[in-house]
C-alpha cells in the first residue's frame, strides 16, 4: 500500500518546525514515530498534504528528572522508556504501560509523546498519564504552555493542541514516598488495542490511608481516555481494604462508556474495567510496600 503524495520537510529546530506549522496550518501533520500515522496514510485514512518530520531536531530524546518532574521529550521512543533505569526504578507503571504497546519493533520507533498527540482513546499512555496527573508541554508561535492531561483530550481523535503547536514534552510530577502505581490491559493478542485498560496511582499517608493524590485512568472504554473521577474521590482518605477496593472498582466500571465491537459487548468491557481496577489497585498497594 502506498500513501498519497505529500510534501516533506525535516526542520532542524523546533522554531523552524513551528514556523512551518504556522505557514501550513491544518495542511501539515507532524511525523515523529509514525507508527500510527504511516499505517493510516497507507490505508488512506489520513492524507496530509505536508509532512513535517521532527526526527531531525536534536535534543528532544531526553528522559530526565528536573524541578520535581520526570520529563519525557518528544522523540523518546517507547523502547527508551522501557530501558530507562530512572523509569524502571521510579515509575514501574510506565514500564507496565510501554511494554504492552504494540510490539518490540513498533516500540523501537513509536514515541511516548506521539501516543498522546494522536488522540486515540485506544492508546495506552493517556490513561496512565491521567492517573499520574501529567502535564503536556505544547510549543507554538506564542511560546510554551502547560496543558494538564485531563484537559488534553476534548473529543475523539482530538487534542488540545492547536494546528501550529507541537507536543514538546510530557511532565510527570515526582510522586511522594509511599506511592505505587500499575497499569493493566487486556488485549486479544500482541499488537491489539486494549479490550480495556486501567491505570492506578495511589499514595498512602502515615496511617495507611489513601491521600488526595489518587489517580485512576481508563483505556478504550469511551470516546476519549477517561479519568475515573468518582472512583478517585471515593478512595481518598480511605483504608483500601478488600471492601473498599471492591467498591472503588465498581464505581470505576460505572464511569466507563464502552461500546459493543469485535473486542466484546459493552457489558463485558464494563465488567472488565471493574476487574482490572481492583487488580491494579492491589498491585499499586503492593508497590507502595516495595513490591514489583
Amino acid at each position: 500500500m502506498i500513501p498519497r503524495s505529500f510534501e516533506y520537510s525535516a526542520p532542524g529546530t523546533l522554531d523552524e518546525a513551528v514556523a512551518l506549522l504556522q505557514k501550513l496550518g491544518s495542511d501539515a501533520k507532524i511525523l515523529s514515530g509514525g507508527q500510527s500515522l504511516i499505517p493510516m496514510m497507507k490505508l488512506r485514512l489520513a492524507s496530509p498534504p505536508h509532512i513535517v518530520d521532527i526526527n531531525r531536531i536534536p535534543g528532544l530524546d531526553y528522559i530526565t528528572e528536573k524541578d520535581g518532574f520526570l520529563r519525557i521529550g518528544a522523540l523518546v521512543r517507547e523502547s527508551d522508556l522501557e530501558r530507562s533505569e530512572l523509569v524502571r526504578s521510579r515509575f514501574p507503571i510506565l514500564v507496565d504501560t510501554t511494554s504492552v504497546i504494540a510490539d518490540p519493533l513498533v516500540r523501537n520507533q513509536a514515541t511516548v509523546c506521539g501516543n498522546l498527540a494522536h488522540g486515540d482513546p485506544a492508546n495506552d499512555h493517556p490513561a496512565t498519564m491521567l492517573a499520574l496527573g501529567a502535564i503536556v508541554v505544547a510549543v507554538g508561535p506564542r511560546g510554551e504552555r502547560d496543558v494538564p492531561v485531563e484537559n488534553f483530550f476534548p473529543a475523539l481523535f482530538t487534542t488540545a493542541l492547536e494546528a501550529d503547536e507541537i507536543l514538546r514534552e510530557i511532565k510527570i510530577p515526582i510522586p511522594p514516598p509511599s506511592t505505587g502505581g500499575a497499569y493493566l490491559k487486556l488485549e486479544r493478542k500482541v499488537g491489539d488495542y486494549a479490550t480495556a485498560g486501567v491505570a492506578v496511582q495511589i499514595t498512602l499517608n502515615n496511617s495507611g490511608a489513601c491521600t488526595a493524590a489518587a489517580g485512576i485512568g481508563l483505556t478504550n472504554v469511551g470516546f476519549t481516555p477517561i479519568k475515573a473521577v468518582k472512583a478517585e474521590a471515593f478512595v481518598k482518605g480511605k483504608q483500601l481494604d478488600q471492601a473498599a477496593v471492591k467498591q472503588a472498582s465498581e464505581i470505576a466500571a460505572g464511569e466507563s462508556h464502552p461500546v459493543d465491537d469485535i473486542r466484546g459487548p459493552a457489558d463485558y468491557k464494563r465488567d472488565l474495567v471493574r476487574v482490572l481496577t481492583a487488580r491494579a489497585i492491589v498491585r499499586a498497594l503492593e508497590r507502595v510496600k516495595g513490591g514489583v
Binding site: L31, G34, P104, L105, V106, N108, Q109
Partner: peptide, 9 residues
C-alpha cells in the same frame, strides 16, 4: 534498532 521497514519512509 530493529524496525518494520513498511512503516518507515
Amino acid at each position: 534498532r530493529a524496525v518494520k521497514s513498511c512503516t518507515v519512509f
